[in-house]
Design a protein around this nucleic acid. Structure first.
Length: 233
DNA sequence: GCGACAG
DNA sequence: ATCTTGTCGC
């Protein structure tokens, strides 16, 4: 819970970067996931040519009934006018406000959340997953479909194979490139807040079904991009 | 100066 | 992110 009063989500790039540098120091990476009973998936989509930001949060019961078979406990959608354009490295300022709106509508309080985007695998080590986790004081894991920064080798071909994602002059490990499904481009997993890379990988692998994305993020994706039918808005 | 660049 | 046809595989 950063200094709320001082956090403006409509900052100019220069100020946004300065804020990220300050907040990055508060991002923790410990393991405090003993009693997880509810796991959330978070993703943001857009409507009306980007004019409306649509945040979706799906809460799943842990553990699953079977491999990749989770029980959906709650699903919420929050829409609001888009406030910022997309700028690589400053995604949080565009998506987090809407995500917070969705969390406010939530009846359940998850103990862990997987967010579509990077965690600390970010130039200043504070991607959307980390920023959201810091703000909600909630353990989070970043699950991105493509790379933002860092270097890596090609992970093995088998599901579960992974290689470290490193960055900086000293090859600091900032995440992992995981083959979540055979024959498919790997995903980028990184610690968000209060989670280590090892723990992040364990959770993501444990949530994999037969698809490329882990269930939490996959379901949130569908709801955010209204590819989800059933209930919802 | 020339690329790279989450969603 | 979003748009959009066809195609491949379980």
């Amino acid at each position: 819970m950063p200094d709320t009063a001082l956090h403006d989500w409509n900052l100019a790039p220069k100020e946004a970067i300065a804020l990220q540098k300050r907040l990055a120091g508060r991002v923790e990476r410990e393991d405090r996931l003993d009693t997880v009973r509810h796991l959330a998936g978070v993703d943001i989509g857009f409507e009306q040519d980007g004019a409306i930001t649509r945040a979706a949060v799906v809460v799943l019961a842990w553990p699953p009934e079977a491999e990749g078979a989770f029980t959906v406990v709650e699903r919420v959608v929050h829409r609001e006018p888009t406030r910022m354009p997309y700028v690589p490295g400053l995604l949080s300022f565009r998506e987090v406000p809407a995500a917070l709106g969705a969390f406010e509508k939530l009846t359940t309080r998850p103990q862990l959340a997987m967010v579509d985007g990077q965690g600390i695998a970010h130039p200043r080590r504070i991607g959307v997953a980390s920023h959201l986790g810091l703000w909600l004081d909630l353990p989070t894991i970043g699950v991105a479909k493509t790379r933002l920064c860092g270097r890596h080798d090609e992970p093995g071909p088998a599901r579960g194979d992974w290689v470290p994602l490193v960055d900086g002059p000293e090859d600091e490990t900032i995440g992992a490139v995981l083959r979540s499904r055979a024959k498919v481009k790997p995903i980028f997993v990184s610690p968000g807040h209060r989670v280590s890379l090892h723990t992040a990988l364990d959770w993501v692998v444990a949530c994999l079904g037969r698809t490329k994305l882990p269930e939490p993020t996959r379901l949130a994706d569908r709801l955010a991009s209204r590819r989800d039918f059933k209930k919802g808005e």
